[in-house]
Amino acid sequence: MAKFSKKKDSGTPAISTASLPDIVFMLLFFFMVATVMRENGERKVSVKMPSADQVKKIEKKGLASYIYVGTPIKKYQSKYGKEPRIQLDDAFASVSDIGPFVLKEKAAKREEEKPLMITSIKADADVGMGIITDIKEELRKVNALKVNYSTKKGEVTVNFK
């Protein structure tokens, strides 16, 4: 009767983990696709975008160039002060750098994509319009007229709470 007693010893069999890599890979691929590497450079200014509800989505993220405007984060405040600054790519920039930046972005795109390019201004809700106006003027100078004011989705009344 040794045969039977052996079976009883084993108890519940261990759950097979053979499909675990597959599941993990699936998740991995999802996040790999969802990640946009270029966007994740160091953010040197803090940006809390205002809310708006008449918004459109940027369909082709690759065709957008981003301009960040906001107060420098704590780490950089001793060096750059607390006044709102512009960040292009990974570095602080001045208003006059915007023209060359947009042209550089444009030069990197294919010919048929160039008219579709859009400049997305990601500005903090509390910055003054002065700096935004300067940016707009610079964009007009290089004929980059399509602008997207990045916002969160929400009621405008949220902005004044």
Partner: peptide, 21 residues
């Protein structure tokens, strides 16, 4: 690694066409 680096950035905004110079 990818979990940490991903920011599900909302790419919403108000469109505007600037007037040419």
């Amino acid at each position: 690694f990818f979990l940490v680096t991903t920011t599900m950035e909302s790419n919403y905004g108000i469109r505007r066409k600037l007037p040419p110079l």
